[in-house]
Structures are given as C-alpha cells and as structure tokens.
Design a binder for these strands. Structure first.
Lengths: 156, 156
DNA sequence: CTAGGTGCAAAAGGTTTGCGGTTAA
DNA sequence: TTAACCGCAAACCTTTTGCACCTAG
C-alpha cells in the first residue's frame, strides 16, 4: 500500500518531466528511475543495469546509459564523478554534497544547508555562477573508528 | 636569463620531491613537469603528450601517464576531473578551486581564500575530513558578455 | 651493477553510436 | 501512423598493463 503510493508518485513525477520535454514514458525509464530511488547508494551505470535486469532481463547497457542521460536531462537524477572508476548516479536532488571515504570507497550524502553561503561575490568580476559542487574526502565514521582502534594498538 | 632561473627552480623542486620518495630524476619527468608549468591551461594527458613530443619526439603516452601519476604523488601536480572528457592536470598547487565555463568549456582557477570556512563542524558526527574540492560551473566573463549581447538583440 | 623507468603494443574499462526492428502517443 | 525508443554489437576514447630494453644513481 505504502510502496504503491511511493512508486505512483515517482511515476507521476517521471511522466510529468518527460512530457515537459516531449519524451515518452517507457517501462525502461520507469524501471531505471525506480532502481535509483530504491537503493540510494550511488550505483554506477553497470550496477543500475544489473539491478534493472533482475526485473527486466532483456534490458541493455546502452538503454541504461541512454535512460540515465535522459533522467539527468529531466533533472530527476544527478551524475556523481569520483576520482577513479565509473560515473555514479544519485536520485537525491536536494542540494547536497558528497563525502568519499578514502578507506572503504563509500559515497555519503552530506546536507549542505548554509555550508557555502554567498560565494558569488568572491568570484572574479564577470563570472556568472550557475551551480556549484562540493566534494569532500576523508574517513567515514566506521573507517575512522577502525583507524583509531588500530592506532591505539600500535602506540601501546 | 629569467627563464633559466625559473626552470632551474622547477628542476630543484622536482629533484627534491623525487628524491624524498626514492624516485629518479629523468628527462621525461622534467619535460612533463615543464609542460605543465609553461601553459597553465589545464591540459589533458593527450595535450601534455603532444606538447612534450615537440621537444622529445620519442616520448610515449604510457610514459606521460606514468609521469603525471608520479607528479601527482609527489604533490607537484593536481588532477582535475570535469564532468565529461579526459582528466586534466594542473600545476597550481596553491589551494584553489575550478570554474568550468558551460559555454566554451574552459577551465579557470579561482582563488579560495576564506571561501569555505569552518566546514568540518557541519559534517555529521564521525566523519573525518581530509580534503575538499569545490567545482563551480557557469559562464566565464567572455561568454557571459557574449550572451548578454545576444539577449539584448533578441529582446529588442 | 641494478632497481626503477621507458617505449611499445595490446588490453581493459567505461561510454557512445549506427542501425533494424519495436512501441507509446 | 510515426517519431521516439529499444537492443544489439561494434566502435571509441581514455587509461592501464606486461614485457624487453635502458639508465640514473
């Protein structure tokens, strides 16, 4: 019941955005968007492909790439590029930033409320800023704790 | 005279950093570092390759990649990833950020003095930040001016 | 002398494209 | 009906790797 209303909301949003740009509502787009909404763990195109495939065995990588592109253009999904490896995708469209753990490689969303206030005035004259993207790197809570434990041992 | 003292300084710095990590000073590394210092326009590996090749025709892409990696590890060069296209390289090691022009595709350095103050306290508990990277997107002064000109026409 | 570096060619990702057949509107 | 979309396979671009030879220290 609850799940249905969630997917229905997603469908409506998707449909609306597609319609707005003269694009069609297809089962593949529905599925790919669904995958991104379900596990918000920043999957790569390949991971999206594998997950979508479980429900839709005939879907192809090309379609996944095309669809992800479409969703990005619709403003329903963001691309996230790490230093190494494939592009990842994120359906959290709230203004937020990403924290990359250098130990485990995980990606975490970080709320950005008021984090970077009034940046534009500091740009050299003439630059017109449209968007900004802040990437943080370091240790996630788990890896940070593990490291601390290790250090304690090596000191004693 | 002035140029010589500049390259000599660069050589010394390179030599010192390489020695510190037990790596050798080679003509290829000197050349690649020189290319990055000369035009600070954020070239891709291929552009570095082409420029280095003019002076050192036998150099290979593999060496350029290896060398760029080495320089990054020595802390003499930064990697810069745009949304699309190849990784770019930057020899400006002052703490700064990058502005990408959505119109012409250019990359510009933006000084970051005091731009992102006191960020760490706002991270969720447990996260240990080691570094941060701010990317800005929008219009560079030139493209911004061109756009303004175009708009004026289409309005009148 | 020898560990580390180089050049080459080939492979390995990751992503895009061309095309014939399919489908939403 | 038909423009948009899909699936497939092949191409593409960027980066990495294995290996024989070379060279700085």
């Amino acid at each position: 019941m609850k799940k249905d209303s969630v997917t229905q909301l997603a469908d409506e949003r998707l449909n609306e955005r597609l319609a707005r740009t003269g694009q069609r509502f297809t089962e593949q787009r529905r599925r790919v968007y669904g995958v991104l909404l379900q596990h918000r763990d920043h999957p790569s195109a390949e991971e999206v492909f594998l997950r979508a495939k479980q429900v839709m065995p005939e879907i192809s990588m090309a379609t996944v790439y095309n669809t992800l592109d479409t969703l990005v253009q619709c403003g329903l999904v963001r691309q996230v590029k790490q230093d190494r490896g494939a592009t990842r995708y994120c359906s959290n469209m709230k203004q937020h930033h990403h924290f990359y753990c250098e130990e485990c490689g995980g990606t975490f969303d970080v709320d950005s409320d008021g984090v970077v206030p009034g940046l534009e005035p500091q740009l050299p004259p003439g630059f017109k800023m449209r968007s900004l993207d802040l990437s943080l790197r370091g240790l996630c809570p788990e890896c940070s704790a593990r490291q601390r434990r290790k250090n304690r041992h090596s000191i004693s």
